[in-house]
């Protein structure tokens, strides 16, 4: 359980867990000081932190609870067991990751045209 304003992780943190939001909301933000910006607000059923879990690389963004939030923590070993028991979880991860790549491609296109 995380209270509103509680930091789940910071950009650059070393970690290998991912999180599923059971209830509440999480703000994902990137950048430093004045350049910091919220890039996504995630809600019930969404997940985050999977990049560090999949690549064993430091966190790429900050994650802060926007409201009182319940989280399910999934470890690397836990992910394999979950995929075995809950195969739809993999499809949902791929679906969300595909959506994020599409959004990034769109931003690149718009940046190229500007």
């Amino acid at each position: 359980m995380a209270e509103a304003g509680e930091v789940i992780f910071r950009q650059g943190d070393e970690a290998v867990d991912m999180f599923v939001i059971q209830s509440g909301a999480i703000e994902i933000s990137r950048g430093v000081a004045a350049d910091r910006g919220v890039i996504a607000t995630l809600g019930q059923g969404d997940f985050f932190g999977e990049m560090s879990l999949l690549e064993s690389l430091p966190r790429d963004a900050d994650a802060i609870a926007a409201t009182r939030t319940e989280l399910l923590v999934i470890t690397q070993g836990g992910l394999l067991i979950r995929l075995r028991r809950d195969p739809t979880f993999a499809v949902e991860m791929l679906h969300r990751l595909s959506g994020r790549i599409r959004a990034l491609n769109q931003q690149l296109d718009e940046g190229g045209r500007a």
């Binding site: 599923v20 939001i21 059971q22 019930q44 059923g45 969404d46 399910l72 028991r85 809950d86 979880f89």
Partner: peptide, 11 residues
């Protein structure tokens, strides 16, 4: 068992 697992994901 499967329903409880999915409910634990926020449904």
């Amino acid at each position: 068992g499967a329903a409880e697992m999915l409910l634990g994901r926020g449904f």
